[in-house]
Each structure stands twice: as C-alpha cells, then as structure tokens.
Design a protein around this nucleic acid. Structure first.
Length: 311
DNA sequence: TACTCGTGGAG
DNA sequence: TCTCCAAGAGT
C-alpha cells in the first residue's frame, strides 16, 4: 500500500499537518525495516518495558555490539526493576563493566528504585513520568514510550537527526545540538496513527544506524534515495561549525576510568595506594577521585580506603 | 549554550 | 598510530 497521495483529505484536523513529502517517506522506510531490521534482544516481545528501558540506558553513546553481552547478563540477574532496586548501587556500577559513562549505571539503579517506590515496580508508560526518572531525558522517554508501549512520539536520536538532515533538509549533518527546528520537523513527519508512528520511529532510526551513517552513506541500499534532498542536491559538503572532536588521552575522564576500573574489579575495599598507582600526576588524580566521590560512584571509608557505593 | 562524562573498534 | 565516533543526560 504505497501512499502516493501527498495531500491530506479535506476532513477534520490531523494531529500534525505533514509537509507534502512527509507521507511519501513512511511506507518505503517501514517496508525496508520489515526486511532489514536487526534481530536485537530488546526488540523481542519478551523484553518488556524494563528490557527496553535497560537497553536505552546502555545504548546512550555506546555501540550495540558492546551492549549486547552486558544487557543479557543484566536482565538475567535483574529481570524486574525491583530486583535491581534492592541491590546496592555499587553492584549496578560493577555489572556495568566497561560500557563507559558509569553514571548511567547509577541513574539506572536510581530509576529502578523510583519505579519500585512510585509505580509499584512497573515501568511507567507516560512520557512525563518517564522523563522524571533519573537518567531519562527527552530522547529516552520518547523511545521507551514508543518502543515499549507503541505510543506516538518524535524519537529524535542522532541517527534520526542525520536521516532527517539529509533526506528532508538537504544537508550532510545535523547541527551539533538538537534545535527547535529539528523537533518541529520530527513532529511534522510523524504518521498520524500510533502503531505506524512507533514503527516509523524504529525504522528511521535503523536506517540511520545501518545505511545513512556518519561514516558514509550507502545510497544504493537506501529505500528513499530517489527522494533524498541531500542526494538530489549533489551531496554538498558540510559547511557549518566543525563538530568538535572528543579528546580523551590525559583528561580527567581517562583518570576516572582507570580509578573506577580498579574498584570494579576489587572484591574488597581498595587502599589509597592501589588507586595512586593508576596515575602519576597527584593533583589530577585527586581531582578525579573527588569527582567520582561527588558523583556517588565511589564511597570513601576510613583511613583512605575506598569502595563502590553501598548506598 | 557549551561542556563534561568512558570505552574500544574501525579505517 | 591516530582520528572518529556509538540509540544522551545533566548542569
């Protein structure tokens, strides 16, 4: 059922009047998704809302391939929010392993506690309730509501932003930070009905992840290449401000990572000397450790001994 | 708004 | 080797 009629009927008021080209994008992208979507564990029905939510936390700034094994172990150990909530936060940090950005583990633990206390242990379905949880922002709230509950939301992640930038706006890359114009565009492109909107969200994201990537687009595999604004314009090069690279070597982040790695792998509290061994510059080392303590990722004990947080 | 916050695989 | 970057959130 290819929707070739770009103009809406003269009936009542649809949720959002889409641009003439909007409806023409839905069918090909969703049909492509039907045959090319990856079989990911959090997309299976048995994952449930908790599985979807855990996956979204882990996938923030982290590739699928690295998330997969940690996700499986996490869900096996904590199949429900209440199972995680009753554990010390340090156990979440430890199980997080080397996924990176360990504050996400702390926030996921805090979200599980809030879900257990405020929502009887069930992941809430309302966007406003989701976004009130620690670690859940605009994107993740929309993603959980859409993927787990089939609701109609603009799910605007980096993949979708790139697809829209190219296919609709006609530029190679989206702006550095999400703009109001992008949100408005995403809303205007949403299919009117709920199930199609949810499908569209997953499909447009998958297209950006597999075909229309940051490294290089593969237009020969793209279901909407024939109507892509950027491609039709001759693929003009990105002109805006250079997207600043993320230097890492020598930063506090690197030191924090080394310190926390020691604590993750230790079965007993760690003496100061063991932490001092990971970085030779004392001022930066102390600043990094203070930061970890301030974030609640590390708990100082007496006599300069440290451990992952018990509370 | 711009910056911080980990990690490791790919080209 | 070095650069880029992978489903963001919080401040």
């Amino acid at each position: 059922m290819t929707a070739t009629s770009p103009t809406p009927e003269t009936s009542a008021t649809p949720p959002a009047p889409a641009p003439a080209s909007a409806a023409a994008l839905h069918a090909p992208v969703i049909e492509w998704f039907d045959t090319h979507a990856r079989d990911l564990p959090w997309r299976r029905p048995e994952a449930g809302a908790w599985g979807v939510m855990v996956s979204e936390f882990m996938l923030q700034q982290t590739p699928v391939s690295r998330v997969l094994p940690v996700y499986e172990a996490w869900l096996a150990r904590w199949p429900r929010p209440a199972d995680l909530a009753k554990e010390p936060p340090g156990e979440a940090v430890r199980a997080w392993g080397r996924l990176g950005y360990p504050r996400r583990a702390l926030r996921l633990h805090g979200a599980a506690q809030a879900i257990t206390e405020r929502y009887g242990g069930d992941v809430p379905s309302e966007h406003a309730q989701l976004i009130s949880l620690p670690g859940i922002g605009e994107y993740t709230a929309a993603a959980v509501a859409s993927f787990a509950y089939g609701q109609r939301h603009a799910v605007l992640d980096t993949n979708v932003r790139r697809v829209f930038a190219r296919a609709v706006t006609g530029v190679q890359f989206p702006p550095n930070a999400t703009t109001a114009a992008e949100r408005k565009l995403a809303r205007s492109l949403l299919p009117p009905d709920e199930p199609t909107a949810a499908r569209w969200a997953a499909a447009s994201m998958e297209l950006g992840a597999l075909v229309c990537t940051a490294k290089g687009e593969e237009c020969v595999r793209c279901p909407i290449a024939d109507r892509c604004a950027w491609r039709l314009a001759g693929k003009p090069a990105h002109d805006g401000p250079a997207r600043r690279g993320q230097t890492y070597a020598g930063t506090d982040r690197q030191v924090r990572g080394k310190l926390l790695a020691v604590l993750r792998e230790a079965l007993t509290p760690v003496p100061q000397e063991a932490l001092d061994a990971v970085w030779d510059e004392p001022v930066q080392r102390a600043r990094a450790l203070d930061g970890l303590v301030a974030d609640g990722l590390v708990e100082p004990m007496e006599n300069g001994v440290y451990r992952l947080p018990l509370s």
